[in-house]
Design a protein around this nucleic acid. Structure first.
Lengths: 217, 217
DNA sequence: CTCTAACTGGAAATGGTGTTCCACTTGCTG
DNA sequence: CAGCAAGTGGAACACCATTTCCAGTTAGAG
């Protein structure tokens, strides 16, 4: 196989194998510890040298988008489903619940979304597609009378930032906190009167001494 | 005076002056950039050597609690007011609005609360007092029928973590996002039917490309 | 089987922290 | 106004992470 302008089209067999090991190791570490694990840690876990890691993935972002490609696709699929759902509120709710749960479960997920949706890479058209789809979903849910009229599409961004803050809580509580936050906000987004809908997920026994801010870094 | 261990009771005049300069510099930097500015940066801004900084404040936490002592006191005062307010919901609302606004405005504030309220320092009894006062406030607001019965005191912690996540948003939007989040959650915490109360603060024009995760660090 | 370009790992350069040490300076007490 | 302990700044040290470099190894085309 000769080298082309843009470099070799196919990796050598051993190189491809190493690449897969890198992605796997990065997946585990990103899930568990977030997007800012040291590159050398990833390399060590994968059993390769740091140089190999940097040769395959020149930036942390490239690695992130590769690692979380599947989850991002599932988000898009869920969004498409939601738009087609005869009950737009149901789709809206499920989309938000999925994204927030994912954001807590895989600590690197949020950064991966950011990395994919930022800059002028080839994810640009996907971002545009997702945004217009979400706008359609919101419009439908509003017209169905289930979503409050003053809901703004940017409130999704707000929610994702807020939910992301819960990752700083003690890990054993983060998930429960997130489900409670989402339940509250869905209550607030909806038009059902009062604390109407489903009962809230159980609260966590957290005191002020746990409160606030990156516990450790 | 107030340093952790029993050093000399009084500082020499020049030392006291330097100490004040340190606190001032730290205040500015913590407000603007959060609790994890480099110690050397603080020292440089204060015009002193790093050794001086470390001699006065053996740990970053000591500096944090000193710098934000005033804000923390205002929180406590507001909590006391709220407990005595004839309308407990009003006090509840004001307390939450103040704390969340402060958390956005002064990026180090949350960490200061944490540092003050963690461990076995002399803030312990203040923490206990604050917690029981807040419990009383919640109980009163519930009994007045303004707060939903399934509200848990730990939901305050949840709110603070969530609000803290908004600090990762672009700084020019963080405040508006926070006010909107707080408005939504107060809607959800309260018992007034539907999107009842005051209109929401205006939304920010944020797209998914801004979304999610520490933009820069 | 041979030979080379792709590939490798680890070392080193770079740049950024937190923390300690120490030779010098200076406020303040007597 | 003398002397000394309190106070000082900056260098030195010990990390730790990113990124580059290079001398050696090996897959796989011919």
């Amino acid at each position: 196989m000769r080298t082309t302008l843009a470099g070799p089209t196919h990796l050598r067999a051993d190189a491809a194998h190493n690449r897969a090991k890198i992605v796997e190791a990065a997946h585990e570490l990103f899930r568990a510890r977030g997007a800012d694990v040291a590159m050398s840690t990833i390399a060590r876990r994968a059993g390769v040298g740091v140089a190999t890691l940097f040769r395959r993935f020149p930036s942390r972002e490239a690695l992130l988008t590769e690692v979380f490609a599947e989850q991002i696709s599932r988000c898009e699929a869920l969004l498409d489903e939601a738009v087609d759902d005869p009950d737009p509120w149901n789709g809206f709710r499920r989309l938000i619940e999925f994204m927030c749960a994912e954001q807590i479960k895989d600590r690197g997920f949020a950064e991966a979304v950011l990395a994919s949706f930022t800059g002028e890479n080839d994810y640009r058209h996907r971002r545009d597609r997702a945004e217009t789809a979400f706008e359609r979903l919101v419009r439908r849910a509003r017209q169905a009378g289930r979503l409050r009229p003053d809901f703004a599409t940017s409130d999704l961004v707000m929610l994702l930032f807020a939910n992301g803050g819960l990752r700083d809580a003690p890990p054993e509580h983060a998930h429960a906190l997130s489900r409670r936050l989402v339940a509250y906000l869905l209550d607030a987004f909806g038009t059902a009167p009062g604390p109407g809908g489903a009962p809230l997920p159980p609260a966590s026994p957290l005191g002020l001494e746990h409160a606030v801010g990156p516990a450790k870094r």
